[in-house]
Write a protein that binds this DNA or RNA. Structure first.
Length: 446
RNA sequence: GUGGUUGUAGCUCAGUUGGUUAGAGCGCCGGUUUGUGGUACCGGAGGUCGCGGGUUCGAAUCCCGUCAGCCACCCCA
C-alpha cells in the first residue's frame, strides 16, 4: 500500500473548509467587480527568467523550479504581481489605460510553514495600472475596506503610510543611504519591542538621537489629522516628504467622504513593507481581535510595474488579500460558516413508490435556484434526518405516502426543529415556490 | 534555511521508575416493535502507539534518523 499523505505546507480542503474558501472568493469577486476591476488569469508556470528577473535572494530561495520536458527552465509563480507585470508588458497594446484587473489564484513558495502560512496558498490581487492619480490610491483603500466589511469582519484596522514621507524624514535625519535597513527595522515595530528595534538600528550605525526620533515618529498614533500634523514638522522642507503627506491627507479626506467609519483607517508611520518596489502609498490591514496573525490584506503604490519587461512606464497601485491567512484567522475566531453542504434543502426519500414525484419536486426546486440533496435510499426517517443535521442543511422536506395522498408536505427547519405544513395538491411547481420562499427567508437571515 | 517543541482510536487526551490482552470522554455505526435529528438507555466497530532503525529478555515509554504539526528567527499573504 502507498501511504496517503500530503507534502509539507500543502493541504487538502474538506467540504466545510472548501465551502468557506469559495464563499470568501465569491465575496472578493463581487467587491472587486463592483469597482469595475476585470478578471484575468495567467499560467501557473512561467519561464524562470520572468520570475527571477526581480532577483531578490529571498524569492529565489523560495521559488519552485525545474526543467520541463522540453528542457526549458521554468518556475511556479510565487505571487500574482510578477505574472501581472509580464502580462501587462505583453498586452498593454490591447488593454487600454488605465487598466484595472483582479486575479485570484494559487501561488507557491517553498518556505517554512507556520500558522496561516503554507507552501501552496491563494492570493486575491487587484491593481490599477497606467495612472498616478491619488484617486486610484483612495479607491484601493476603499476596496480593501469594502472587502473586509463584506466578509463580515466588524473589527479591523487598515494602516496607511507613504514611502515618500519616510524617505523625506530619513533625508532630514541624514539617513537617506541607510533607508532599506532602517525601514526594514521599523517595519518590525508592533511585533518586536521598541528596544529591540532600537538595537537593530544602532547595529546599522544610526546615531542614538536619530534612533530616538525615528522611534517617536514610528509610534505616532491617534486621529489621522493629528498624526499628519506631527509628521509635517518631522518632514520639514523635504519636497518628497511633503508630497507623501499630501497624498495621505487626500486619502484621509476621501475615506471620510466615502462614509468609512472613523477608526477603521488610520495612519501608521511604522508601516514600511519589506518589498522595495513600493514608492508611495503602503497599506496593511489587521483583524483587531487577532493582530498577531499579521496583515491579511496588503498593498501599495509602485512607480513602474513592468520595467523589466517593457520600456513603457506602467505606474500602478493595488493590494492583495491573503485568502488562506484570512481563513485561518476566521477559523480561529469561530467566524466561519460550519455547513458541510451547499444544499439548502434535504429531500427525505421515504415512500419508495413515489420516486418519480420526488424527482419532479427536486427538479422544480433546482430550476428555481434552490440546491437540493435527495437522499438516494428509502431508509428510516431518523437516519436521514440525522445526516441532514450533521451536514447542516437548513431545511428538510418530508413527504411520505400520507402527504402524497393529501397533497401536503412537511417543511422542517433543522435549527429549531419546527415543522410547517405546506399544501401543494400534487403540483410540483406550487410546492417548489413555497419551499423556495421559505429558503429565501433562511438565506436572508444568515 | 536556522533554533526550539510536539506526534497514542475520527477528535481531545491518559498511560505510573521500560514489563504480559494500550484506556477514557466525545464522535461514528446499530438497536430501544414498523414515519421525525441534535436528549436518554443498550450494544458494536475502530489503534502499524507518525514512520524507520538501534539498545534490551522485554519499548508507547530510552537513543539515533526521518516525516509532519506548532512556535521563534528570517521573510511575507
Amino acid at each position: 500500500m502507498i501511504t496517503p499523505r500530503t507534502l509539507k505546507g500543502f493541504r487538502d480542503h474538506l467540504p466545510a473548509q472548501a465551502l468557506a474558501r469559495e464563499w470568501v472568493l465569491d465575496v472578493a469577486r463581487r467587491v472587486y467587480r463592483s469597482y469595475g476591476f476585470a478578471p484575468i488569469d495567467t499560467p501557473a508556470l512561467e519561464y524562470l527568467e520572468i520570475l527571477t528577473g526581480k532577483g531578490s535572494d529571498e524569492t529565489d530561495k523560495q521559488l519552485y523550479r525545474f526543467t520541463d520536458h522540453g528542457n526549458r527552465d521554468v518556475g511556479m509563480r510565487f505571487d500574482l504581481t510578477v505574472p501581472f507585470a509580464r502580462f501587462a508588458a505583453q498586452h498593454v497594446g490591447s488593454l487600454g489605460l488605465p487598466f484595472k484587473r483582479y486575479h485570484m489564484a494559487t501561488v507557491w513558495r517553498g518556505e517554512n510553514t507556520q500558522r496561516g502560512r503554507y507552501r501552496e496558498f491563494m492570493q486575491c490581487d487587484f491593481d490599477t495600472i497606467g495612472t498616478t492619480s491619488p484617486v486610484s490610491d483612495l479607491e484601493t483603500v476603499l476596496v480593501v475596506h469594502d472587502l473586509l466589511v463584506a466578509i463580515g469582519i466588524d473589527r479591523f484596522t487598515i494602516r496607511l503610510n507613504d514611502r515618500r514621507t519616510l524617505t523625506g524624514i530619513l533625508e532630514q535625519a541624514g539617513l537617506a543611504e541607510k533607508q532599506t535597513d532602517v525601514l526594514r527595522a521599523l517595519d518590525k515595530l508592533g511585533k518586536a519591542s521598541s528596544e529591540a528595534v532600537g538595537k537593530e538600528l544602532a547595529g546599522h550605525g544610526v546615531a542614538p538621537e536619530a534612533i530616538e526620533r525615528l522611534l517617536a515618529m514610528a509610534s505616532l498614533a491617534g486621529p489621522p489629522q493629528e498624526v499628519l500634523k506631527e509628521l509635517e514638522t518631522l518632514v520639514g522642507e523635504s519636497e518628497i516628504g511633503k508630497a507623501g503627506l499630501a497624498g495621505l491627507a487626500k486619502i484621509v479626506d476621501g475615506v471620510a467622504s466615502a462614509g468609512v467609519p472613523e477608526g477603521r483607517v488610520v495612519l501608521d508611520p511604522s508601516i514600511a513593507r519589506g518589498l522595495d518596489y513600493y514608492t508611495g502609498l503602503v497599506l496593511e490591514s489587521f483583524l483587531d481581535e487577532l493582530p498577531s496573525l499579521g496583515s491579511i490584506c496588503s498593498g501599495g503604490r509602485y512607480d513602474n510595474l513592468a520595467g523589466l519587461y517593457t520600456k513603457q512606464p506602467l505606474p500602478g497601485v493595488g493590494a492583495s488579500l491573503g485568502l488562506d491567512r484570512l481563513i485561518a484567522g476566521l477559523e480561529e475566531l469561530g467566524r466561519l460558516p460550519t455547513a458541510e453542504t451547499p444544499a439548502e434543502v434535504f429531500l427525505v426519500f421515504f415512500a419508495d413508490e413515489h420516486l418519480g414525484d420526488y424527482l419532479r419536486i427536486a427538479s422544480a426546486l433546482r430550476s428555481r435556484g434552490v440546491a437540493v440533496e435527495f437522499y438516494p435510499e428509502a431508509k428510516k426517517l431518523g437516519v436521514q434526518l440525522k445526516l441532514a443535521a450533521k451536514r447542516g442543511h437548513p431545511v428538510a422536506l418530508i413527504l411520505g405516502s400520507d402527504e402524497f395522498a393529501a397533497g401536503k408536505a412537511q417543511l422542517k427547519r433543522m435549527a429549531s426543529g419546527e415543522s410547517e405544513e405546506l399544501t401543494w395538491g400534487g403540483d410540483a411547481s406550487v410546492l417548489a415556490e413555497a419551499v423556495a420562499a421559505a429558503v429565501a427567508l433562511v438565506r436572508s437571515r444568515t
